[in-house]
Design a protein around this nucleic acid. Structure first.
Lengths: 109, 109
DNA sequence: TGAACTTATAAGTGAACACTTATATAATGT
DNA sequence: ACATTATATAAGTGTTCACTTATAAGTTCA
């Protein structure tokens, strides 16, 4: 891997909000509107973070109806390292279970 | 490890010139003036990169006479991951052997 | 068709970044 | 003391970054 490619990769991960997004994605795939509920961020902010993560090939997207469902790109060569790195971070306060309890979990179909 | 701490760490690594500095340091400790010979960067630029790396506790410094000798901080909890990450990067074109051949290797004593 | 909903994009803003040149600080050797 | 050497810091600059608000684009369903 070249230096500039590694730089792009590390810069994509190296933001606390994107790390939190990635942490959520280790548990399950989610859509933008769920992130906005989980993370106290505006929808455009989330969208722009997803674009960054996508450009670095850290995540993949799947359009389903009006939703875009985001997943970790398990095919990336540095995926195992990413998982290890994320395992060192604490679980977020708001979880997908919180969403379910509040009736805000979206079934995208 | 907290999210903001991980962010500082990744941001410190996430620059191609600092990755090159770290790559050099995996082989041996070096002083600023050697980096300026190896890397086609000005001395203040190198100094400022070292300060960043030091703040993130990726490197340690040892003053010896007029030189400051920099080393990887092998005590950092993420040191093994750093080594793995750097192992994925190609060896630099200019090496310490090049310096020796040119008579520019400094013996700091 | 049109309203509601989800997401993406555009434009603007203040802060951080990676450099530059100039200068200060500190140790060495004559 | 003075010149040389090695490094650190200061100030300035153009670029990138992470947001904001506003709006556009696309889907669903009445």
């Amino acid at each position: 891997m070249e230096y500039l490619e590694m730089e792009s990769y590390l810069k994509a991960i190296g933001d606390h909000n994107r790390m939190l997004i990635l942490k959520y994605l280790t548990a399950e795939s989610l859509c933008i509107c769920e992130f906005t509920e989980l993370m106290d961020m505006t929808q455009p902010a989330i969208s722009q973070h997803m674009r960054k993560l996508k450009q670095a090939e850290l995540v993949t997207e799947e359009k389903r109806g009006r939703w875009t469902i985001w997943s970790l790109n398990i095919r990336h060569s540095l995926y195992p390292m990413l998982i290890h790195l994320l395992s060192l971070l604490p679980e977020p306060e708001r979880t997908v279970e919180t969403l379910i309890a509040e009736g805000k979990k979206v079934i995208c179909e």
